[in-house]
Design a protein around this nucleic acid. Sequence first.
DNA 1: GGACAAAACTGATCGCTGTCCATTTATAGT
DNA 2: ACTATAAATGGACAGCGATCAGTTTTGTCC
Lengths: 208, 208
Amino acid sequence: MGRRNLHTREQQRDMAIAAAELILVREGIDELSMRKVAQAIGYTVGNLYLLFQNQDDLLAALNERTADAIYLSLRDRIEPLDDPRERLGAMARGYIEFATGNPHRWRLLFEHQLPEEMKPRPSADARIRRLFELVEATLAMLEPRLKAESLRLRATTFWGGIHGICSLAVSGKLSWGGRSSDYRLYCEEMIAAFFGAASSRAKAVRRS
Amino acid sequence: MGRRNLHTREQQRDMAIAAAELILVREGIDELSMRKVAQAIGYTVGNLYLLFQNQDDLLAALNERTADAIYLSLRDRIEPLDDPRERLGAMARGYIEFATGNPHRWRLLFEHQLPEEMKPRPSADARIRRLFELVEATLAMLEPRLKAESLRLRATTFWGGIHGICSLAVSGKLSWGGRSSDYRLYCEEMIAAFFGAASSRAKAVRRS
DNA sequence: GGACAAAACTGATCGCTGTCCATTTATAGT
DNA sequence: ACTATAAATGGACAGCGATCAGTTTTGTCC
């Protein structure tokens, strides 16, 4: 075959990314090959390489979608909430629920290292920075006295901590350290450690 | 060639694991192939499959070594320290320094998911549980009043948080949320959040 | 409407991978 | 010396990412 012109380049890119996402969700990262993606969208492998530089380029595009999905999911969750502390809790739980509900997508985003020659990808980084900024903004409501620098430090540390709980939860290692593997417990504990009180456990934190 | 009997099965296993570790450290996970390992120890690929079920089996064995190395490194670090709070700080910093100093080894241990049919690997899990238990034991010194259940919860959450900072540091994403990417800052902040005071920053935590 | 150039797409090919197993070789026992 | 057995080989297989010369379709100009 030759020129078909059924879809524009941009359409083909979208189709490929969507197909890749479907394969990723259904079969996992190991089963996600360029050949499968090509077949899923009715084109050949060679054509895929006219749309993407290489496989990692496709995966990076897929990761951008995932980052957007997480951001929008969290934004929607906190929107109806007024109390900033509740918002932080909702974000933390929402984050972990997305990750455990979409483990392959989350892992690809955070645990798949792209080769260095692909580094100049500001768009993907920016999308994750948005996440941190969302946390930072919410934290600013909770503790208005904090200066910008301290705010950033606290927000990054807190969210990094939640990210760690999330990481352990996704790989099923939360039960390594504790009997129960209910992530909500650890979220509460983390929030209590950072923002005190509001639960009986938090009082123990103060006392220490 | 046939039977050479230069090394026992167990020797060959050790050689293979050591060779794999060297390749992993020097060239990264993507460059670590069964063929390279086989060549490095002077045997053929087929022979490797008499020593290990498959590649993941070899990687799992390699991961056990890494887990041991981390554990021993942390144990040595805290040994000369008396104050439990200093111990926790030393452990946290030591953990992140190991990870950033041996990124490929750390990533293989925590971010490479083995297929499910290999799940019954209690030895690897147990080695990481030791890490959590080390934290738990140190935390017990710091807060002797806590009951076993609360102790486990706090230790897991705290170490999960450090693990998250570590994860971000290894993948160079710590600068996403904050200007500076010095992991020590985040460690201090995490410790201050969980165990209060001892730094000017920590007082802000109490006040909030 | 016919010729021509450019764009779109294909499909064969390359080197590599993990995995398997029939075959060959060296050893130990008699 | 002969045999049984353990040890190790090496070639085969299917699938992978990536490349690119070649084929086919399209739009354009006369």
